[in-house]
Design a protein around this nucleic acid. Structure first.
Length: 242
DNA sequence: TACAAGTATGCCGAGTGACC
DNA sequence: GGTCACTCGGCATACTTGTA
């Protein structure tokens, strides 16, 4: 246990007290800033959650503060969404399978009994909120920048919906007034390039990427995946064997 | 712990090519 | 010819890393 802890410290370059913060994998939260946070007594996500923006800004640069606040907000929203989803699922199960009610099975087990054939389809895109430095495409890790991650994450949250340039600009650059659609294009292009570089720049792959990251001329951009082809993880996921 | 140097990132301007 | 998507090079800034 001590050796595991030590190697984790070596990898992250922080003291033991800073490991909880390092495990958040927030881009820009380097060992230097982790140390500053620990020194101020903010050693984990819980501490950060209780902090106001102004307090965080005393220790960290504004840009990093915004990034942390955004992560905390998304975590909160996600927990709420999961709760609602579970409630809805339970209700659905009660209606469709009245007999199961009498089996004393937990709500966690019930859904697995009702899996459809579709759930066996291969995952195309996997996004882990705690690893904003990469996405997983067809089982392969693809490194992305924080902006690229935010973009793909937003598109994934609105899978199969054309997101207009205005919406994307509002969402990703809400504090800036002079952003132009070229920025969006630039990052979309970078994502495509990174994916193709990893999976291979063949004609088939190029076509496939075009069908998945659809640019609708004059309207916007859409992520086009089946529900079962897309996984958005909010928890630590095991690394793929690539 | 602090700082200098190196690296990564984000952005813009400009250019190209495809399509209508 | 106009519009749009894509690409590249260069620059400023933010961030990371090595080290005294």
């Amino acid at each position: 246990k001590k050796i595991i802890l030590l190697s984790e410290r070596l990898i992250e370059g922080v003291e033991e007290e800073g490991l909880n913060l390092a495990r958040l994998y927030i881009p820009g939260l380097s060992r230097y800033y982790i140390k500053r946070l620990v020194r101020e007594g903010y050693a984990d996500e819980k501490c950060l959650r209780g902090l106001r923006e102004e307090e965080l800004a005393k220790v960290l640069p504004e840009r990093l503060v915004k990034r942390i606040q955004k992560r905390i907000k998304e975590d909160k929203d996600d927990q709420e969404a999961k709760k609602q989803k579970l409630i809805a699922k339970d209700k659905k199960l009660e209606n469709c399978h009245p007999k199961l009610e009498t089996c004393n099975l937990s709500p966690e087990i019930l859904p697995s009994l009702l899996k459809t054939k579709n759930s066996k389809l291969k995952t195309v895109l996997q996004i882990d909120q705690h690893r904003p430095d990469r996405i997983i495409f067809l089982g392969k890790k693809i490194e992305v920048t924080s902006t690229e991650f935010s973009l793909i994450y937003f598109l994934a949250q609105h899978n199969n919906q054309v997101m207009s340039y205005d919406t994307l600009l509002d969402e990703l650059w809400k504090d800036e007034k002079d952003v132009i659609y070229r920025r969006v294009n630039y990052h979309v292009f970078n994502i495509k390039k990174a994916i193709l570089k990893t999976i291979g720049e063949t004609k088939t792959n190029i076509e496939r990427i075009k069908k998945i990251l659809v640019v609708v001329p004059g309207r916007g951009i859409m992520l086009n995946l089946m529900d079962n082809e897309l996984i958005i993880n909010r928890q630590h996921a095991p690394a793929p064997a690539s």
